[in-house]
Amino acid sequence: MSPVTLDLARLQQWMTRFAAVAEQNKAYLTALDSAIGDADHGTNMARGSAAVLAKLEASPPSTMGELGKTAGMTLVSAVGGSAGPLYGTFFLRLGASIGDAAELDAATLAAALRAGVEGIVARGKAEAGDKTMVDAWLPALAAMDEAVASGASLVDALAAARDAAAAGRDATEPLVARKGRASYLGERSAGHIDPGAASTALLLDALAEVAAA
Rank of each mutant, 00 (worst) to 15 (best):
V176K: 00
G65L: 09
E127P: 04
L141Y: 04
G42Q: 04
H41Y: 12
A78T: 15
A112F: 02
A20L: 14
Q13F: 08
K55C: 11
L207K: 01
G191E: 09
L8P: 02
A147E: 07
T70S: 14
E146D: 14
A31S: 10
G116Y: 04
R181M: 13
A159K: 06
L185C: 07
D205I: 04
P195R: 04
A197E: 07
A22P: 07
E209N: 06
M64S: 04
E118S: 08
L154F: 10
V148L: 06
A115Q: 02
M133Q: 04
L203K: 00
G168Q: 05
G37E: 05
D205F: 05
T63G: 06
A39T: 05
A31H: 11
G129Q: 05
I36G: 00
T70G: 02
W137P: 02
T30Y: 03
H192L: 10
D170C: 07
E57S: 13
S199I: 11
G186L: 07
S189H: 00
M133P: 02
F18N: 02
V121D: 02
R181F: 12
A208I: 08
A96K: 06
E57I: 07
A157H: 03
A51H: 04
A136N: 04
R188A: 12
L207P: 02
M133G: 11
R188C: 09
V76F: 07
V4C: 06
T30D: 15
R162T: 07
A106Y: 06
E187F: 05
I193L: 12
A83I: 08
S2G: 06
F90R: 00
G116D: 05
W14Q: 02
E57K: 13
L104M: 11
A71M: 14
G116V: 10
D135T: 08
L8I: 12
T108V: 13
T43F: 13
S153V: 13
K179Y: 09
A164N: 03
M73C: 07
A78Y: 05
L158F: 08
A161E: 03
V79P: 02
L67D: 00
E173M: 12
S59A: 15
K55G: 04
G72T: 05
D170P: 06
L67C: 09
V4I: 11
T89H: 03
Q13G: 02
T16A: 14
P61L: 10
G88Y: 03
G84F: 10
A54V: 13
P61Q: 07
G68Q: 01
P61N: 09
V176W: 01
E127A: 14
P85E: 09
F91W: 15
